[in-house]
Design a binder for these strands. Structure first.
Length: 470
DNA sequence: ATGTGC
C-alpha cells in the first residue's frame, strides 16, 4: 500500500481503480505496523457510492468486518449515498459513559472493597442472557427501542440531568421497531441492563492526571477524583440487527447497480427501502445501547450510595459505533451526509450547537476506554476537526484472543492486577486472560497520535482502582 | 462484538 505522508500523523492513499475519493489515515508509522489488511479496507470503503471527501482511518485502525475498525466514511444522501451496516459494526451503539463521584480516591479507599463486592452482585455481565431489567410486558422492549435512556429515566432509573449529558439527549426519534426482527427482539429482551463480554467493562477509576484544568473543571472532573466508566453496547439485539440487514442488503445490492470489492461492504442507498429499514433498526439498537448504559449507571449509583455514601453524576455518554445524519461543508457546499463511525468517536468542537449549553464553549467530551489495568482518557473536540469531527475510540488489538489466552492465565493476570492495587471481579478467568493488556496497542500512543493529528485535545487520564469484566 | 460456526 502506497502511503504518502502529507504531514506528521496524516497519510494519504491516492485514488486509483474504483476509488471515488482518497484514503486518509491519521497515525504514526509505528501504529501502522501490520496494518496492511486494514489499509486495504480503507481503500475498499473509498469505492462506495456517494462517499465524499475521503475514506478516513483513526490511529487505532485495525481489521474489521468489511470496514476497518477506526474507520469514518460519509456519503451524500442527496446524491446516491449509501448506508452500510459494516460501517457501523456488529455492536451497534457500542459506547462509553463516564460518571464522576463526589469523592476522591483517599476518601473512598476504606469503602472500596464493599463497593467492588456490591458491583459484583449488581452488574450483570458475561456472554448470554441476564440483565438488571426483567421485562414485564410485550410493549416494554418497544418502549426501550423508542425511548433509550429517556425511557429508563422516566421509569425512575436516573436523573433528568443525565439526559443533558447524553449524545442526542439519550435517544433518537427515528427508531423503527417494525424493522427489528423477532429474533433480534428475543435476543435483546433478556439482556436489558448488562455489560456483555470481551473488551466491555465497568471500572472504578481515579483521575491520575489533568492536562487541561479549565476543560476538566467544565466536565466536572479533577485530579484524584473517583469516576466510574462503563463500556458496553447493544448486546445480541444489535448483533442480530446487523446480521439481518447485511443479508437483506447483500441480496438487494445488484438491483441498485451497486458492486463492492468485498461482500462485507453490503450497502444500499440511504433513500432505498433497505437503507431506510436498516437505519430505522439501527436507531432502535442505538436507543437500546443507551438504555443499557443508563440502567447500569443506576445500578452502580445504588451501590456507591449504600456502600460509600457517594453520589455519581454523569459527565457524558457517547457511542463509537453509529451512522448518523449530519450536515457538513464539503468542498464549500453544505451537504446532508450519512456519517459512518465504526470504532471512531464523534468529537464536536467548541461552539457546536448540538452540545449542551454548559459544555458548549469547551467542546464535546470524548471518552476513550483503555485496556484493562492500564489507563482510559477524556478528550475534547477541537475547532477545524478533520474527518467530520471524529477521533479514536480505544487501543485496538494486536494479539488474537487465542494468543492472549496462551500468553497468560486468568489466575496469573488477576494476581498481577491485584498486586498493582487493582481489584478485579471477573465473571470468567478465560475471558480475563483474553483481555490481557499486552494483547492491545498502547492506548496512550493512540491518544497522543490523535491529538498530534489535530483530531482532539487530551483533557485527563484515568487509571483503574477496580475492574468488572464479563 | 456475538446464544464465540454454517
Amino acid at each position: 500500500m502506497e502511503l504518502v505522508e502529507e504531514r506528521p500523523y496524516r497519510f494519504r492513499i491516492e485514488p486509483r481503480g474504483g476509488m471515488r475519493v482518497p484514503g486518509v489515515v491519521f497515525a504514526s508509522r509505528a501504529l501502522l505496523a501490520d496494518a496492511e489488511e486494514s489499509l486495504k479496507q480503507v481503500v475498499n470503503v473509498a469505492t462506495l457510492p456517494g462517499i465524499v471527501a475521503a475514506s478516513y482511518a483513526m490511529p487505532d485502525i485495525h481489521w474489521g468486518y468489511g470496514f476497518p475498525i477506526g474507520g469514518v466514511a460519509a456519503t451524500d444522501v442527496d446524491h446516491g449515498g449509501v448506508v452500510s451496516p459494516g460501517g457501523v459494526g456488529f455492536d451497534i451503539s457500542c459506547g462509553v459513559r463516564l460518571l464522576a463521584a463526589d469523592t476522591d480516591r483517599r476518601a473512598l479507599e476504606p469503602a472500596l472493597p464493599a463497593v467492588m463486592d456490591g458491583l459484583d452482585r449488581a452488574i450483570p455481565r458475561g456472554a448470554g442472557p441476564g440483565g438488571v431489567w426483567h421485562l414485564t410486558g410485550p410493549g416494554q422492549l418497544e418502549r426501550i427501542l423508542q425511548g433509550g435512556s429517556r425511557y429508563a429515566v422516566e421509569q425512575g432509573y436516573g436523573e433528568e440531568r443525565d439526559l443533558m449529558r447524553c449524545e442526542d439527549g439519550g435517544a433518537v426519534a427515528d427508531a423503527d421497531v417494525t424493522r427489528v426482527s423477532e429474533r433480534a427482539r428475543e435476543r435483546g429482551s433478556g439482556q436489558v441492563g448488562s455489560l456483555g463480554s470481551a473488551n466491555h467493562f465497568l471500572e472504578v477509576q481515579q483521575v491520575a492526571e489533568v492536562y487541561d484544568e479549565t476543560v476538566a473543571a467544565a466536565f466536572g472532573i479533577a485530579a484524584g477524583q473517583v469516576c466510574v466508566m462503563i463500556h458496553c453496547g447493544s448486546r445480541g439485539l444489535g448483533h442480530q440487527i446487523c446480521t439481518d440487514h447485511v443479508r437483506a442488503m447483500d441480496r438487494a445490492m445488484t438491483r441498485y447497480g451497486i458492486t463492492v470489492p468485498d461482500r462485507q461492504l453490503a450497502c444500499t442507498p440511504v433513500h432505498s427501502p433497505e437503507g431506510r429499514a436498516y437505519l430505522g433498526a439501527m436507531a432502535a439498537a442505538a436507543n437500546y445501547g443507551r438504555a443499557n448504559r443508563q440502567l447500569l449507571s443506576d445500578a452502580a449509583r445504588r451501590v456507591f450510595r449504600s456502600a460509600a455514601g457517594t453520589r455519581l453524576s454523569l459527565v457524558y455518554d457517547v457511542s463509537h459505533n453509529l451512522a448518523k445524519a449530519e450536515t457538513h461543508t464539503v468542498a464549500g457546499r453544505r451537504r446532508r451526509l450519512c456519517v459512518h463511525r465504526k470504532g471512531a468517536t464523534r468529537a464536536f468542537p467548541p461552539g457546536h450547537p448540538d452540545l449542551p449549553e454548559d459544555l458548549r464553549e469547551f467542546g464535546q467530551p470524548v471518552l476513550i476506554p483503555g485496556t484493562m489495568g492500564t489507563a482510559s482518557y477524556v478528550l475534547t473536540g477541537v475547532p477545524g476537526g478533520d474527518a467530520f469531527f471524529s477521533t479514536c475510540h480505544g487501543a485496538g488489538r494486536v494479539m488474537s484472543r487465542h494468543q492472549a489466552a496462551r500468553a497468560v492465565t486468568g489466575t496469573e493476570l488477576r494476581a498481577r492486577l491485584e498486586a498493582g492495587g487493582i481489584a478485579v471481579r471477573p465473571r470468567s478467568l478465560r475471558g480475563l486472560s483474553e483481555e490481557t493488556p499486552e494483547a492491545y496497542k498502547d492506548v496512550g500512543e493512540v491518544v497522543a497520535a490523535s491529538e498530534s493529528a489535530g483530531l482532539c485535545r487530551t483533557v485527563a487520564r484515568l487509571v483503574p482502582l477496580g475492574v468488572l469484566k464479563g
